[in-house]
Each structure stands twice: as C-alpha cells, then as structure tokens.
C-alpha cells in the first residue's frame, strides 16, 4: 500500500507537485496518468526518497521509504530503465542488486528467465541493449527482491506489443496475489486496459481519481438505435442530457442501464448500447488535462 499525503514539491518559483494525495491499494493496479511534465516522475521519486518533498509525505506500507529495513525486498522500483552503467552487463546489474538486498545469486537467473533475457543477452553490456531490453532488465530488477509493492514509471516504453501484453499479465497476476502496483503513463489506452484505479494528474495537481469503473460510468453511455431521433426525444423527455456524435450515435451521461430502460419504454430498438469507455475516458483525459497541457489541445 502506498499513501501520498498532501505532497508538494517546489523548484524555485515552479510548483511541480501541488498538494497531491492518493493511495494505491493492495490487490489493485493503480494507474498514474498525466501528460508529460505533469509531475508523475517527481511524485514517484519522492516516494522512494530520491527527491526530498517540500511539504507532505509519501508512505509505503505505512513507513517512510528510508525507514524500510530492506527497501528492495519490500518495494520493486523502476524509474528509468536507461539509468544504468552502460559498461556493465545485464547480469552484473542484477547481481549487484541481489548482493545489496542479500539475495542468493540464483535469483538473478530466475529473473532473467522471467523477463525473457537469454544468457547471451544477459552477458552483453547494457550499452548494446535496445530500449525494450533495458525495460525488461529494469522489470527484472524490480521483481528481484520478491516485493509486495511495485512502483513503475512508464514501464511499457519501448516494449513491443507482445511485451506490453506480457507485462500486463504479469502486473495483473502480481496484483491478484495481493500486491500493490502503481504504474505511470502518459498514454491513456496503455493504462486503461490494466488499471483498476486511476489517478489523473495535470500541472502537478490531481484532476480526477477513483476506480476505473466509476470514472468510466462518469464518462457516460453511447447508444444507437433504429430511430435515433425518437430515441433522442425520449431521452430528453426523461431529463437526460443528450449529444449527437458525428457517427450518428447518441452520447449521454446516464448509465447504460438507464438508457436501456428509456429505450424500452419508448419502443425504440437498439442496435448498440455501451458505456463510453475508451473514447469517453480519453475525452475526459484530454478535457481534464487540456488546461494544464503545454500546447493545449489542437482544434
């Protein structure tokens, strides 16, 4: 469990993290979502004690990171897969980490196997690694100590589609086993498929947080029917706010359940009824972060 309590970080006149509070629960994958420069990485560095906060605190399993007796055995951390000595081999990087944590070196081979780095690749120097290989090495390092909590900053960067799917399964299993997973991304789709809870951050401030289900419900419902106009009239009559999408569907803030009942009463046959997940959340993401985005949203 990770608890962030009223955390702020100021650089001179610039407030990089502004009064951020959230928790990442055990047994759940928490997605930390925001555009580049929103303060995700800074918040994560504060969690692991690399950056001193200006005010507020970050606790892991109820303790400050520096008070953990053996942090690597409790929290697996991957902040930047490229932050490794270019002249060291992949295996040596894991070996150094294993020695630090007091783990048997057999654990190194287990982890190399888990992330699919071959013996030949593991004896190569990291200088010659692709970003995807570095990322998998970083995940191996994070899992090395068999931790209960994972903190991963943009872990899908550089992974190929099969690798992303593999990582998704791995994190799902980790959380299903009772582990806490916090992962950041600036890509909504990437995080939407894996996260149970979402924390959206823009310009250092949290703009929305909650379970993915709740946030998706807030995104509303998309509905199509044989008679779109009649359906729109019925929905408005039921007091719902309705908008027409360019592809001749209707969008409303109500739940699919509610919309279905209205359609039934109006006698309109539906051809499609679903929560406005992907697109809806994306819209919300863009909307919520639009004000804080550097370039703004292109018209």
């Amino acid at each position: 469990m990770i608890t962030i309590d009223a955390l702020s970080k100021r650089y001179g006149g610039f407030l990089a993290v502004d009064d951020v509070s959230f928790t990442a629960q055990p047994g759940r994958v928490t997605g930390f979502l925001g555009p580049n420069g929103a303060g995700k990485s800074t918040t994560m560095r504060v969690m692991v004690g690399l950056t001193p906060p200006t005010t507020g605190a970050a606790l892991v399993n109820g303790r400050h990171f520096a008070d953990l007796p053996n942090p690597g055995r409790e929290v697996g951390v991957l902040l930047d897969a490229s932050a490794q000595h270019a002249g060291r081999t992949g295996r040596d990087i894991l070996k150094v980490a294993a020695l630090t944590m007091g783990l048997p070196l057999s654990r190194v081979d287990e982890m190399l196997g888990l992330v699919g780095l071959s013996d030949e690749e593991a004896t190569r120097r990291v200088r010659h690694y692709s970003l995807g290989m570095r990322q998998r090495l970083g995940i191996a390092a994070a899992l090395l100590g068999d931790p209960h909590v994972l903190i991963l900053d943009e872990p899908a960067n550089g992974l190929d589609p099969a690798g992303i799917r593999w990582m998704r399964d791995l994190l799902r299993t980790f959380a299903d086993d009772g582990g806490t997973v916090l992962l950041s991304s600036h890509l909504l789709h990437e995080i939407e498929v894996i996260a149970d809870d979402l924390v959206l951050i823009g310009n250092g401030r949290i703009v929305a947080q909650g379970t993915k289900t709740d946030l998706l419900a807030a995104a509303g419902t998309v509905v199509r029917g044989t008679d779109v106009d009649a359906l729109a009239v019925a929905l408005k009559a039921a007091g719902l706010h309705v908008t027409r999408t360019p592809d001749k569907a209707l969008h409303t803030d109500a739940s699919p359940d509610m919309v279905g009942r209205v359609a039934l009463a109006a006698g309109v046959a539906l051809t499609e009824l679903r929560s406005a997940d992907g697109a809806g959340l994306e819209e919300m993401f863009l909307e919520l972060t639009a004000a804080s985005q550097r370039e703004g949203v292109a018209a």
Binding site: R63, P69, E74, L143, D169, G178
Partner: peptide, 26 residues
C-alpha cells in the same frame, strides 16, 4: 509468459500484502 504467477516469487508466497518484516535488514 504462460504463468507468471508461478515465477514471480518463491513457492509458497502467493500473498503480497502488508509490510515485509520477514526479510533481513540491509
């Protein structure tokens, strides 16, 4: 990749809750 669950931790540690007071300190 088939079953990451059996690979992540040593056998007999499927539950990952709470602080780990079972590990030796640095």
């Amino acid at each position: 990749y088939d079953s990451p669950s059996t690979q992540i931790g040593p056998a007999g540690s499927p539950v990952r809750r709470g602080p780990r007071d079972d590990v030796p300190a640095l």
